[in-house]
Amino acid sequence: MPRPFSLYLDLCRFLAAVLVVVSHIVPYGVIAAGSANWWLNLGRESVVLFFVLSGFVIAYTTERRKAGLRDYCIARATRIYSVALPLVLLAFALAAVLVLSGRANLGNYYQLAKPWLYLPLHLLFMGELWTISEPPPLLAPYWSLGYEVWYYVLFGAAFYLRGKRRIIVLGALLLLVGPKLWLLLPVWCAGVWLWHRQKTHAIARPLALFGWWATLALLAGFKMSGMDTSLRMFALSAWPLPDVPLKSADRFLADYLVCVLVVANFLCARSLGFIALLRIERPVRRLASYTFTLYLVHALVMRVWLVFHPDRTDLGGVALLVVLIIACTWIVGQLTEHRKAWWERVFVRLAARSQATAR
């Protein structure tokens, strides 16, 4: 992959994480409701970008590394659990502290009453299967991992298995995950398609420049028009399975449109080159290396902050909250995303023990 294009994708990844943080400012109550503009509400679109990027990167890495299924599983487990495991445990611990200190009601964190049930549910990313809709306490953005991790599993089965075994395993997995994950699977698969498409097809530079700007303008128009809300309402009214509610997949029609814009934008960016980004390569790579941590940590910080700082008009307090999010992201990132080598060794040892036990 050309360095400028890889750098562009990293920049998009970090900006998308920032937009997710910004999109929670009003819903979480950091500032008063009624003060939001469309550009403060791009969180869902950012998750769509994450899904496309995820499919793209998985297709790229599996093709480049020529690894087997075992190495694929270790790599994916390292990437996900290095961040998810510590933060889920931290979320339960913080929720317990809030309840025990009398600052929160146990009813708000009912999962604390059955940790033996909910911890495995979250750590196995089963919170979005079929009719379930269960993010961990204080970690609402975790919902998207309930999609992405299963897409990793589905891709691994499709890529590494052969013959009847592949068909049986894929069929069983699709039956397990349920309709919500089926609906957003095309968005993730679009990233896989993008990887293969951009290798062999280029766009003339004038057309690529026009297309790049056009995708941004169309996204802005899409949000300003309120079409995303209209499509969400239509999807809810037309959904034919009332006993299987859409819940976190209720924006799938809008997600498809955003997915097309994201894929088109990336294709145009691939042909444009963006050589100038090489001048800021180090800071962009550094910031992007904290993306996953920022995506989850900010929710913890916001939720706990609002318990102790309920004032919605204190701009100084909001500024301090931003500083806290940055500081906590850096600290947690040092123990998670920036310690992947340690986590990888853990999963290599676990894989070796499992293999020895199987023998």
Rank of each mutant, 00 (worst) to 15 (best):
A17G: 14
G333H: 10
Q198L: 13
A208I: 13
V304S: 02
S237R: 15
G226N: 09
A356S: 12
N265H: 12
V348Q: 14
A217V: 15
A217N: 03
A341L: 09
F159V: 12
A238L: 09
A208N: 13
L7D: 02
A95K: 11
E337A: 13
A95P: 13
L324K: 05
W342D: 07
L121K: 12
L40M: 15
G316Q: 11
A204L: 07
P242Y: 00
V346P: 04
V244E: 09
S54F: 03
L11H: 08
N41S: 15
P245K: 07
A358F: 01
S271Q: 03
G226S: 05
L145I: 15
T78N: 11
A249S: 15
F222H: 15
S289D: 10
G156N: 04
S35F: 08
V97L: 13
V322W: 02
P86A: 08
A96I: 01
G273P: 08
V323P: 02
A238D: 04
P283V: 11
I167W: 13
K340M: 13
T131C: 00
F50D: 05
Y118F: 15
L161C: 11
V244H: 14
P136M: 00
T215H: 04
I31Q: 12
A238P: 03
K199G: 06
S6A: 12
L87N: 11
A264L: 14
L129Q: 02
T291F: 03
A140N: 06
L231H: 11
D243N: 08
Y160C: 09
T215G: 03
V88G: 01
L219G: 09
P240H: 00
Q111T: 13
V99R: 05
I280R: 07
S271E: 05
Y118G: 08
P186Y: 03
W130A: 01
G171V: 06
V26A: 11
H201A: 14
Y28W: 09
L117P: 05
L241V: 01
A351T: 06
E63Q: 14
A254K: 11
G127H: 07
F155G: 05
P283S: 05
W143C: 04
V149E: 02
A276R: 11
V348F: 01
P310H: 08
L257K: 10
N105K: 13
H24L: 00
F222I: 06
W195I: 02
V47P: 13
L100Y: 06
R270E: 06
A75G: 06
Y118D: 08
M224H: 09
I132M: 11
W305N: 12
S82W: 01
R44K: 12
L207K: 15
